[in-house]
Each structure stands twice: as structure tokens, then as C-alpha cells.
């Protein structure tokens, strides 16, 4: 059966970053993002430190800047919002090329773009070096409730299946003369969304039967995820440690 591969975000590789246990990378990402969020927006040099950290992680993982840049595109709606801020925010104004910009708005916009980009780039490095099953077992290792990881797992597992069904329904519509370029034909899509929902609901029921048939009684079983060694934790936490040092210096200075 065809279908897109769900590990579209993953880049095959054998770097140290690829080999680190998922739990340590998830921990490092969480701490790094927290450091980025807490960085005072005026401390430009601290943001440079964060950016250098991400660039070194990319270099270590063998990721090309173009790859990360392409994935950063998802951020555009937030960037647009940030560009909007200097025009609408109140407070003291600054005249630039005849435009009256709010100083508070400029800081606000910068804050969103800088922190958003850094956080997103760090997540891209994580997902490019860790497969989805590893991420899920890493989350379990970090004691995220099994209910949450199971739901995430099912979502990943069935995303392709449902996308495949949607694709087939689209082909069936095209084959019978439907031309989806025109907005007034959205009704056909709305109807097929309803049909897709019913189909997915029915599949959910069958999956539940299949689980029950193999002794499922409401509790997902646990599997031993790989246990990270102290050295691996130290290696992974090196990156957020530098970021936190930068934050501490920026706040105390």
C-alpha cells in the first residue's frame, strides 16, 4: 500500500546525536527551550549563544542548514503576527523611514521571532535525529503518563492510514468528474470529511476489538525502553547547561 512515510521528519544518520537515548534528548530539549524562554529580550548576545548551540548540534548531527530552514517555514504565521506588532502596539513611537513604529511592539515582535525560531529549530534537530517510536518510548521513560503516549502513538500509527483513505476518496471524486479547483465545490469535501469521520470511527471500533482479542483490559503494557547512562545524560545536558549559564549571566548582569 502506498502512503507518505510518517518519519518524514527523521533524517537517517549515525551521529552521536542520533545514538543518544531519546529520553536524554527530550530532557535536553525541554531544558533548552525553558532557557530560551527565560532569556531577557534585551540580551542579544545570549540569543547568539543559543543560536550557536543549535548550529553546533546541527553540525554534530550532520544536518544541512537548508533542511532546517525548510522546516522552519511552519513558523511563518507567527512571524507575520510578530511583524504586525510594531504597527498596532501602543506606547512610545519611533520614526523609521516615515513609518511610526511602537518601541514596545518592536521588542515584542523581536521576542516572539527570536524565541520561536530558536525553540522550533531545537525541536527540528530532535525530530531529525530521533525516530517516532524512540520518541514515544523516551517520553515513557521520562514518566509521561502512558495514556498520553498511547494516544500519541495511535495518532502517529493511523495518520497514514487515514490520509490514505482520504487520498482514495479524493481519487474517487476526481474519477467521477469532480474538479476541486473551485471553491464552490467545497461541499463535496465537506461531505467526504463526514464520511471519513465515520470510517475512522468504525476503524477505531475494529482496532479496539483487535486489542481486546489479545487480552487488553484497559491498561497498555509497558516495554523496557533503553536506560540512559550517566555519561549519556551528561553529554545531552551539556547544551542546555551552556544555555542556562548564558541566561544566568544575562539576568544577573
Amino acid at each position: 500500500m502506498s502512503g507518505t512515510h510518517t518519519h518524514a521528519l527523521f533524517v537517517h544518520g549515525h551521529s552521536h546525536l542520533h545514538r543518544l537515548p531519546a529520553s536524554t534528548k527530550l530532557g535536553a530539549l525541554g531544558l533548552f527551550v525553558l532557557a530560551v524562554v527565560l532569556t531577557p529580550r534585551e540580551s542579544f548576545w545570549a540569543f547568539v549563544v543559543h543560536a550557536v548551540l543549535i548550529l553546533s548540534a546541527m553540525w554534530l548531527a550532520g544536518l544541512k542548514p537548508g533542511f532546517v530552514a525548510k522546516r522552519l517555514v511552519i513558523e511563518i504565521p507567527f512571524v507575520l503576527f510578530a511583524l504586525f506588532l510594531p504597527f498596532v502596539a501602543g506606547g512610545d513611537k519611533l520614526d523609521v523611514l516615515g513609518l511610526s513604529l511602537s518601541i514596545e511592539g518592536l521588542w515584542g515582535g523581536w521576542n516572539i521571532v527570536a524565541k520561536g525560531t530558536l525553540g522550533l529549530a531545537a525541536s527540528i534537530v530532535l525530530t531529525a535525529t530521533t525516530t517516532v517510536p524512540d520518541l514515544l518510548s523516551g517520553l515513557e521513560r521520562l514518566r509521561v503518563p502512558r495514556l498520553i503516549t498511547s494516544i500519541a502513538g495511535f495518532m502517529v500509527r493511523y495518520l497514514d492510514v487515514i490520509a490514505g483513505e482520504m487520498h482514495r476518496m479524493r481519487l474517487a471524486m476526481l474519477s467521477r468528474g469532480h474538479d476541486p479547483r473551485w471553491i464552490w465545490q467545497a461541499k463535496a469535501y465537506a461531505t467526504s470529511a463526514g464520511a471519513l469521520f465515520i470510517r475512522s470511527y468504525e476503524r477505531g471500533e475494529r482496532v479496539y476489538y483487535a486489542m481486546t482479542a489479545r487480552g487488553f483490559a484497559g491498561q497498555m503494557p509497558t516495554f523496557d525502553a533503553e536506560r540512559a547512562t550517566a555519561t549519556e545524560w551528561m553529554g545531552a545536558l551539556l547544551l542546555p547547561a551552556v544555555a542556562w549559564t548564558a541566561v544566568a549571566v544575562a539576568v544577573l548582569a
Partner: peptide, 12 residues
């Protein structure tokens, strides 16, 4: 089950 997609629901 007839449809393996119903039977195989775990990440690996």
C-alpha cells in the same frame, strides 16, 4: 483480523 491495519496498532 482481515485488515492488518486493524490488528497492528503499536509504534513498532
Amino acid at each position: 483480523f482481515q485488515d492488518p491495519d486493524d490488528q497492528l496498532f503499536m509504534p513498532t
